[in-house]
């Protein structure tokens, strides 16, 4: 209290121009600001500009074509399939990895024996890269080598589970691998959040006779909001950029049934030597991120100022 008062008094007396306040700190921040402006904002603008040009192998800023690349993009069935796949993968991956992660965390939170060992085992998939994960699951889901073969050898001769070679469900085959890889990490994040909940709250709920599952859902979950936000941001960024998993597991096949936007961008830019189209696709990806991010950021940060 008193320190705040003194601070206010201090500023009131000297009134240094706002710009010169904390000069050293501002000076130190210059490189960071420059990097953010040049690399993030600058390169984004550069990319968006070139998405309106007929840039092929090399960027060609003078060949302006307007919306041509976007028109072609949205008429290509490969792009539409990519978007659809990303939506399916994103929706299920967000819901499933959060709920599986939460259930696992809650189970571990019950002070069980060998918690460290179990936690390490569940977290292990996260230590593997997507390429390794994809390859491992390609083998597991391979009908001649993997799961289907094992179950058939147990005696269930007609068992069929071959998602990777079926265009209708191939994206779910990729989803399984994605969740297997990611939910352990979500669990660890949420477990850390749960450990941060005051022991007294548990005591109080026990006194009131509230069952443990209700305590988790109605008391612990709302208190863990910041941890959930962190987890969602991490999962969501993983969803948007999913690429290596698909390349390793199916390379987009069968046909183009498991294509994703990030793969489309890379292949149009470097394989088809059509930078303009690739930039248009990546601009659409940025736009979709912003559509989700801006309302959320507004609610999250804008709300506080008013309230």
């Amino acid at each position: 209290m008193s320190s705040t008062d003194a601070g206010q008094l201090d500023t009131a007396m000297k009134r240094p121009p706002r710009l010169l306040k904390n000069l050293a700190a501002k000076f130190a921040a210059v490189p960071m600001v420059l990097i953010a402006l040049v690399i993030f904002v600058g390169c984004t603008i550069w990319t968006i500009y070139h998405s309106f040009t007929r840039s092929r192998l090399l960027p060609a800023p003078e060949k302006w074509v307007g919306l041509e690349n976007y028109e072609r993009l949205w008429s290509e069935s490969r792009w539409l399939i990519s978007i659809e796949n990303l939506a399916i993968y994103g929706f299920f991956s967000l819901i499933l990895s959060l709920s599986i992660g939460f259930i696992l965390a809650a189970l571990l939170d019950r002070k069980i024996r060998f918690e460290n060992t179990i936690r390490t085992i569940i977290l292990y998939p996260f230590a593997l890269s997507f390429v390794v994960t994809g390859l491992a699951w390609q083998w597991i889901l391979n009908p001649q080598l993997g799961l289907q073969n094992v179950v058939r050898n147990w005696g269930w001769e007609t068992f069929t589970f071959d998602p990777l070679n079926n265009a209708e469900i191939v994206i779910y085959g990729i989803l399984i691998a994605g969740i297997w890889q990611g939910s352990g990490f979500v669990m660890v994040l949420l477990l850390a959040g749960m450990r941060g909940i005051d022991e007294d709250i548990w005591k109080a709920s026990r006194v009131e006779g509230i069952p443990a599952w209700k305590t988790y859902i109605f008391i612990v979950m709302p208190m863990m909001r910041p941890v959930f936000v962190t987890a969602i941001v991490i999962i969501a960024s993983g969803i948007i950029k999913v690429y290596d998993l698909v390349v390793a597991q199916t390379s987009g096949g069968p046909g183009i049934a498991s294509e994703v936007p990030a793969k489309y961008v890379i292949e149009k830019m470097f394989f088809s030597q059509n930078l303009g189209l690739g930039f248009a696709a990546s601009t659409m990806m940025l736009l979709s991120v912003l559509i989700v991010l801006i309302p959320w950021a507004y609610l999250e940060f804008g709300g506080k100022k008013n309230g």
Binding site: I256, S272, Q273, N274
Partner: peptide, 18 residues
């Protein structure tokens, strides 16, 4: 051009598998 070639590749592999 590589671009046209890529488009035909996409069409053919989609047609072949679907």
């Amino acid at each position: 051009s590589a671009d046209t070639d890529g488009q035909i590749n996409d069409l053919m592999v989609e047609f072949w598998n679907d």
